[in-house]
Design a protein around this nucleic acid. Structure first.
Lengths: 340, 340
DNA sequence: CGATATTGTGAAAGCGTTTTCAGAATTCTA
DNA sequence: TAGAATTCTGAAAACGCTTTCACAATATCG
């Protein structure tokens, strides 16, 4: 498999097949009928010369990059990673290629990354989470098809793919209540500091509403803020414990914080689920493998990625797919026990 | 921030600044001196018209894509992910952009992905793991700078970035021996089925040598094969238990299998570390947060990624950086206890 | 102060495709 | 079977930049 195709151009193969470059281009892209004879001659020449079209020339001439920009916030978080995987799968078989950029949850970085992607003339854009405001997204939409994943932005809701986070929070809390728990702590994440977690806030609201519906008080002493990372789950539990308010269950706004919480409890000799029950959100891959396996609310990350990919392809082709919210559902494992 | 720059070309801004396109190009790339007056006029025009160069035209004309191809095997495995993160960081600030492809540990997929990357005319290539044979890599090297991460390929060792996996296996096993363990099980991964894990095999060898050096027998009944995923760790422990050979410690060839093992032990009511000690390899992010926190051999994934990025940039610039193997070192946490 | 370097600049020729346009060849229609 | 409709095909003009070349305009030297 030589790689010295460096210089083989469409003209070479045109000459070799005794046709014009236009014709070669036609069989390459299947953009018009070409007689059987010439077609095979061309294909043979391509084979023989190991011809590979120059993508830049193609893009320049056609105005298409055959590329989908994917703007994520956290390469490396299991949840975002699932989405990425789904996108990869969804794009497979299409002629489009994903191009990733990482906004790292910093608005400035995110904007910069977005521009790089746009400079790269992506044919479509998938934005995962982030903080770009609706207005900006709307203006992008004028020139570039767009799908937003894991975030709900009212003005362009028909371009958004998300789970109902309110229901997620509600379901988790409700389950704990049904299991007899009355003092349920919650680890949330700040919503002020621009870390733009509407998702997390929705879960928080679900938590509160579930309590209200069960005529249970919302006790501020049982609510702590983390930052979505494991370590903050550890800290959150320390904090909870230091406040001295008794609780028999913890609902963490994501699995990573739940993992941290679980470790902190272990350190204090508090057993899960015998002493304290624990519920997370996301159903990360490792949730099923911690000890005890974590009961959590599943966000169908991979599926969302797949759907996002299919959707952006559809938009690019001028279609208008219906984007329906995903259902989050409780995955019952072993980190919750009935309160006695 | 309008995005209707669609049509602003270098010619427009040349006209606006009363210069020729050549001159604009010169200030754009800083490829030659331009008088102060024209320079500022040009910059102003760029600003005003919100000009963004067309990357395809640039690449076509210059022959450079300003892109680094990154071929990974497993988007989503924490270890590979760390490397990716490192690459992202290492590339930051350079004008190069990474382009990812996933070989999924299938030789066919990997080859295909490689070709797509090469078609994309990447200026450099970082290959993480994989099974491409030395010959093929060697031929790529003729046209494209290359760095291989997390894999040691003798004929092009000066292009490889890896940790000494033999030492990793040795260190883990030795530690267990030093802690008084005499019956140490090992969960490895198949090396036959083309899943090309020389790394894992090296760890296995380290394990064996450590036993030999301590005059301990190598007991085939204490060796099981997994596939590097959590679930296989579960199965491995089941298998081990069913064989009835007593053991007081397990060395798993990677953290994910260690996690699975830990779960299986929990299911059987076997305590870690009181009854059985456990050691993994990788030091994945979650290793510090499982219960009990896992003692493991750290592979500096992020650092390797960073170095790989720096190295490929150096190669592109015609330099020849020295690539020295990384050290793996034991991270002692709480999953091992002294054997009584 | 004329000859020689140096610096800044524009014209124009690529880079390797796609695509429009028009004409040639073929097939169809009445 | 003449004319009309279809199919194929090639020439040539984009696409938006970079870069070579040559030539002014300056600066430098003996």
């Amino acid at each position: 498999m030589t790689t010295e195709n460096k210089k083989v151009t469409i003209t070479h193969i045109a000459k070799m097949a005794n046709v014009s470059p236009s014709t070669v281009s036609r069989v390459l892209r299947g953009s018009a009928e070409v007689s059987e004879a010439k077609r095979t001659a061309i294909q043979q020449a391509i084979e023989e010369l190991q011809y590979r079209p120059n993508i830049f020339a193609q893009s320049l001439a056609s105005g298409q990059s055959m590329t989908i920009g994917v703007l994520t916030q956290n390469f490396g978080s299991p949840f975002y990673d699932g989405i990425l995987q789904g996108i990869l799968q969804g794009l497979e078989g299409s002629d489009y290629w994903p191009m990733f950029a990482d906004g790292r949850w910093y608005e400035k970085v995110e904007k910069h990354a977005l521009h790089l992607l746009l400079d790269r003339r992506v044919d479509g854009l998938i934005i995962i989470g982030g903080q770009l405001d609706a207005e900006m997204l709307h203006s992008i939409l004028k020139t570039t098809p767009l799908v937003v994943v894991a975030r709900e932005i009212p003005p362009i809701r028909n371009r958004c793919l998300y789970v109902n986070n309110y229901e997620a929070g509600y379901a988790a809390t409700r389950y704990l209540i049904d299991m007899g728990h009355r003092h349920i702590a919650h680890i949330t994440a700040p919503t002020i500091n621009k870390i733009a977690i509407d998702d997390v806030e929705k879960r928080f609201e679900g938590y509160k509403q579930a309590l209200i519906d069960a005529s249970l008080p919302i006790d501020p002493h049982l609510i702590v803020e983390g930052n979505l990372l494991q370590q903050s789950g550890v800290l959150a539990v320390e904090m909870l414990l230091s406040r001295g308010r008794p609780f028999s269950a913890i609902f963490a706004a994501n699995d990573q914080m739940a993992f941290g919480a679980r470790l902190a409890l272990y350190r204090r000799g508090i057993r899960v689920p015998e002493d304290v029950s624990l519920v997370g959100v996301d159903d990360e891959p490792s949730a099923a493998y911690i000890v005890p396996p974590l009961t959590t609310v599943r966000q169908p990350a991979v599926e969302m990625g797949q759907v996002a990919a299919k959707a952006i392809l559809a938009f690019i082709n001028g279609k208008t797919p219906e984007l329906t919210p995903f259902k989050a559902h409780l995955v019952v494992r072993e980190s919750v026990s009935r309160y006695r």
